[in-house]
């Protein structure tokens, strides 16, 4: 164990670092970007729908809201790793394979949509009802009010929610790596964990923390720029460091044999 963990002359001279790390980084970034894109694409409308059908929405339909809520909460309750395995047939149907980062995007997106949708719903709920009434009084349609009042005024909150979603997603891409999803997570597990290459593990951890930090900073920055409210939480919020456990949320029961 000690031999490779502090592999003296090979520490950081590891060929894995040179040969596989660049691809792993790209895979993690692609996975995050693609999932982020599809999550926004489906999650934003779902969040808007949830809000507008809900009790404080523009067109409340209690029965439909409850049904939709149930589905969303169900999606949020299923542990990601279980979801990933469970929907493999669906993943195959969409991307033709269940292995690789492209395949990981499907369960990641499915898991992130309900999460993001709830955050969107909360941001819209925080928009003062008086603004909605004021613009309705101008003779605006519900669509106009949704886009120009709810979404536009709730945008700092939505961007904040999207940042949280992305940060969570990055940690999940690592988890997806554990079951063949590629990326830094897979590298960490295959080499850092199974082959005791401490340098690979360390690099993967640092890179993931770096990516999370950059995403968090960028998200906060954009949210602040969009925010013109007088004394808003988003304006004052400082960067909160993300704990390593959030980047690596998996706790494997026991160490497997090196392959």
């Amino acid at each position: 164990m000690t031999a490779t963990l502090v592999a003296g002359d090979t520490w950081l001279n590891n060929p894995v670092v040179e040969n596989q790390l660049p691809d792993a980084i790209l895979e993690t970034l692609y996975m995050t970007a693609a999932t982020g894109f599809f999550t926004a694409l489906f999650g934003l409308p779902l969040g808007i729908l949830l809000h507008n059908l809900g009790p404080k929405g523009l067109t409340p339909v209690p029965a439909l809201y409850r049904a939709l809520s149930l589905v969303v909460d169900f999606g949020r309750a299923v542990p990601f790793i279980v979801l990933m395995l469970w929907i493999i047939p669906f993943t195959r149907l969409v991307v033709g394979t269940a292995i690789g980062w492209e395949a990981a995007v499907v369960p990641l997106t499915v898991g992130a949509i309900p999460f993001f949708a709830r955050l969107v719903e909360n941001s819209l709920r925080d928009v003062a009802w008086g603004k909605v009434e004021a613009v309705r009084m101008m003779g605006a349609s519900d669509l106009h009010v949704t886009v120009n009042v709810l979404v536009r005024e709730g945008l700092p909150g939505i961007v904040g929610g999207f940042t949280i979603t992305l940060v969570t997603l990055i940690s999940y891409t690592a988890m997806a790596g554990a079951v063949g999803g590629g990326g830094l997570g897979q590298l960490a597990i295959n080499y850092g964990y199974h082959r005791y290459q401490g340098d690979v593990m360390l690099i993967c951890v640092l890179l993931l923390v770096l990516i999370v930090t950059v995403v968090q900073y960028t998200g906060n920055f954009i949210a602040r720029r969009l925010d013109h409210r007088e004394s808003s939480a988003a304006g004052r919020r400082r960067f909160i460091p993300v704990p390593v456990q959030q980047v690596f949320p998996i706790h494997l029961p026991s160490r497997g044999t090196p392959s």
């Binding site: 003062a128 008086g130 603004k131 009434e133 004021a134 613009v135 009084m137 101008m138 003779g139 605006a140 106009h144 120009n148 009042v149 536009r152 005024e153 945008l155 969009l226 013109h228 409210r229 007088e230």
Partner: peptide
Amino acid sequence: IGMVFQHVNLLDSRTAAQNIAHPLEIS
């Protein structure tokens, strides 16, 4: 009908000019 509210209800994301222009955009 023009309506004036106790809490004004301007949109924070719009400037004064953009807020005033809003009803005109709608019509």
